[in-house]
Amino acid sequence: MREIPLYSTFKKIESINKGMSGDKKYYIETVDKKHLLLRISDFSEYDQKKIEYDLIKKLINFDVNMPFPIDFGVCNEGKSVYTLLSWIEGEEVETILSTLTEKEQYKLGIESGKNLRKIHSLPAPQGIDDWSIRYFSVIDERLEAFRSEGIPFDGDKIILDYIETNKPLLENRPQCYHHGDYHMGNMILSKDGELFVIDWHTVDFNNYGDPWYEFNRLGTEFPAFASGQIDGYFNYNPPEEFWKLLAYYLSVSAITSIVWSKYFAPDRMNSILKLNKDILYWFDDMKNTVPIWYKSEFEM
């Protein structure tokens, strides 16, 4: 850590023991009263961490509310890579939503949708394969894993039939850069009431693809917030095609999570099976692609 150029300005260093990433994280206060976030990763992750840092530098220019990039480099005698960002002081949206009224939840959802739209204004690299090719090169294997070793449930065939029948929806989709893990657990409400997006370290499809794919982590347990995020993203007018793809991405994510849970998180299996049953309920056995939890009466 002492090799970090700004280390001499560090007055306070506190370890942060939160989150699922393998990074070591620290809260930093400097002698000139700046508050920073330091992430230290194994050097084997250098290329990916550099991509993340460069992405943050690009998106700052698109007026996205997010931590400001301060510095990036190698430390610990070449064994580690560090990323230094501004610290966002505030509360995690995930922890405070239950204390807010539905109108307040909806308002925050609006801001999250606007932020996501700004993120998606950065186009994906040129010359990449069609989104359907990239998506199904990963997802087909996961769907086959469910068919062969997943835990069956009432309605699984309905979901699988919807996924198979609607594959053409993913052809010729526009592609852009993604946050990678866009959900309320990665959002901070600042002391000034602004909504910030944090934790850009998740890599999913190389962090670019269909912009609407990022709604697969929508916080449906808070319908007002989820409705607001959709309305904020689409300026209160989501197109019909969006609903079909939302149903698609949510159902694929849910049903393919069953085998993942079986091997890596068996304690979450009941909640994932419930999610699949909820999807059947929300979309009326996949016959109505506008979910029943979506409401527009929160509009302010």
Rank of each mutant, 00 (worst) to 15 (best):
T9W: 08
G19L: 07
M20S: 08
M20R: 13
S21I: 06
G22D: 15
D23Y: 02
K24S: 11
Y26G: 13
T30K: 10
D32K: 14
D32V: 14
R39Q: 14
R39M: 12
S41Q: 03
S41N: 05
S41E: 02
D42Y: 05
F43G: 00
F43N: 08
S44V: 04
E45F: 13
D47C: 03
D47S: 11
K49E: 04
I56Q: 05
I56H: 09
I56W: 04
K57L: 11
I60L: 02
I60E: 07
N61S: 11
N61H: 10
D63H: 15
P69K: 04
I70Y: 08
I70A: 03
V74C: 04
N76R: 11
E77C: 05
E77N: 14
G78C: 12
S80Q: 09
Y82I: 00
T83S: 13
E89F: 07
E91K: 10
S98G: 12
T101C: 01
E102Y: 01
Y106E: 00
Y106V: 01
Y106Q: 04
G109E: 08
I110A: 12
G113H: 09
I119A: 05
H120K: 04
H120T: 03
S121G: 15
L122P: 00
P123D: 14
P123F: 09
A124I: 01
W131T: 05
I133W: 07
Y135C: 14
F136I: 02
S137G: 12
L143G: 01
A145D: 09
F146L: 12
E149P: 02
G150L: 00
I151L: 11
P152E: 13
F153R: 10
I159R: 08
L160R: 13
T165D: 15
L169V: 02
N172K: 15
C176V: 14
G180P: 01
Y182F: 15
M184V: 13
M184K: 10
G185F: 02
G185N: 14
N186E: 13
M187Q: 08
I188G: 00
K191Q: 09
K191S: 09
K191C: 06
D192P: 04
G193P: 03
E194Q: 10
V197M: 05
W200C: 08
V203W: 10
V203T: 07
V203F: 13
D204C: 13
N207H: 06
Y208P: 00
D210S: 02
D210F: 12
P211W: 07
Y213F: 15
E214A: 11
N216L: 12
L218Q: 14
G219Q: 01
F222M: 06
P223H: 08
Q229E: 15
Q229I: 07
G232V: 08
Y233I: 04
Y233F: 06
N235Y: 04
N237K: 15
E240F: 07
Y248G: 11
L250S: 05
L250I: 05
V252L: 14
T256D: 06
S257F: 07
I258T: 00
W260S: 01
K262M: 04
K262S: 08
Y263M: 01
Y263G: 03
A265E: 07
D267Y: 07
M269W: 00
N270R: 12
L273D: 00
L273S: 03
N276W: 02
D278Q: 12
D278C: 03
L280W: 02
D284S: 06
D285M: 12
K287W: 01
P291R: 03
I292Y: 05
I292L: 09
W293C: 06
S296L: 01
M300K: 09
